[in-house]
Simulated assay, not measured.
Amino acid sequence: MLITEQSSLYNDLEKKSVREILEDINREDQKVALAVQQTIPQIEKLVNQIVPRMKQGGRIFYLGAGTSGRLGVLDASEIPPTFGMPPSWVIGLIAGGDSALRNPVEGAEDDTDQGWKKLTEHHINDKDIVIGIAASGTTPYVIGALREARKNGILTGCITSNPDSPMAAESDVAIEMIVGPEYVTGSSRMKSGTGQKMILNMISTSVMIQLGRVKGNKMVNMQLSNHKLVERGTRMIMEELGLNHEEAQELLLLHGSVKKAIGAYRIR
């Protein structure tokens, strides 16, 4: 039996108090970071192959169904505002399309051909990277896409919670995060989902740092999409250039990003 389908270590959940349930879930969640830690060599291997491809114009595609698909779309959607990258650089695809972000689409994950079809609509090429996400490692939508991508010389990776899965067999780099049975049996939105989010954070953040989208520890390329981010950018410029608030904000709004504002000021 797949680890993700094994029975919970806890019984009679409906008889537990709220405090007991919360403490049990938290106890299980503490196992996730340790499971992710064990996968760092594989994450590093994948990132080291992603960076040179993206420097040549390659893109990352995340593919998944259900929770896994939603987490891929989430990570992809946060790249433009956080790092100032075009939305075409990291793309999240979910079985069943965007409507599946809110509602389950019956049978979508069982379609072996649909994932690759979606990738071809984006004119995928051998500079790109395809990362499949599935706790079970058995999702046909993802496996079919990875298989075709690999046939076409495209780098493939995966994030799964079961060892030696069919999805891993189609991946150049398999990230196998073994978090154990879920608190509610089979509910991979819990520990597996938490671990997937952590790994996606690690992949995208380390890639963006390597691509020069962070300076020091600051998001110098973030989009100025609200007052909070304008103020954050203003403070960065004040600290970096020693300007007062008014001067720093005027410079920021003139150039549109912290990085551009600082660069323009220094070449005056």
Rank of each mutant, 00 (worst) to 15 (best):
S165C: 11
I154L: 04
G58S: 13
T82E: 01
I124Y: 08
I154C: 06
R232P: 15
D113C: 04
R189W: 10
I175W: 02
T120E: 11
G96S: 12
Q30R: 11
M167H: 04
T120I: 11
Y62E: 12
M236A: 13
V258L: 15
T194P: 15
L13K: 03
L224H: 09
R147F: 12
L34P: 15
E106W: 02
E239L: 12
A35T: 04
G115T: 02
V142S: 03
N125H: 06
L253Q: 11
T138Y: 07
L93C: 05
L71W: 09
I159C: 13
N201A: 13
A33D: 06
E148R: 00
R70M: 09
D24P: 07
L71I: 05
H255D: 11
N125E: 07
G84H: 05
Q210K: 14
L211T: 07
I40G: 02
G193W: 10
I25M: 15
A134E: 01
T112K: 10
K215A: 08
I124N: 04
D29T: 00
M236Q: 14
L9Q: 11
V258I: 15
A100F: 03
I91Y: 01
I199R: 02
Q49M: 12
D164W: 08
I131F: 08
Y265V: 01
N201R: 11
M236N: 15
G216P: 08
G180L: 00
I203K: 04
Y183N: 02
G84S: 14
I209A: 06
R19H: 14
V90A: 14
K45F: 09
A108T: 05
K118C: 02
I267F: 14
Q114P: 01
G97M: 05
I178P: 15
L251C: 10
D128K: 05
V73S: 10
N201Y: 15
E23R: 13
H255Q: 14
T185H: 09
L74R: 01
F61I: 00
L252Y: 10
K197E: 12
V73R: 06
T139I: 08
G195M: 05
S192V: 00
T39C: 12
D113L: 08
M238Y: 04
H255M: 07
H122M: 06
N226D: 09
P86Q: 09
K259H: 08
M190Q: 14
R59K: 13
S17W: 13
T234R: 14
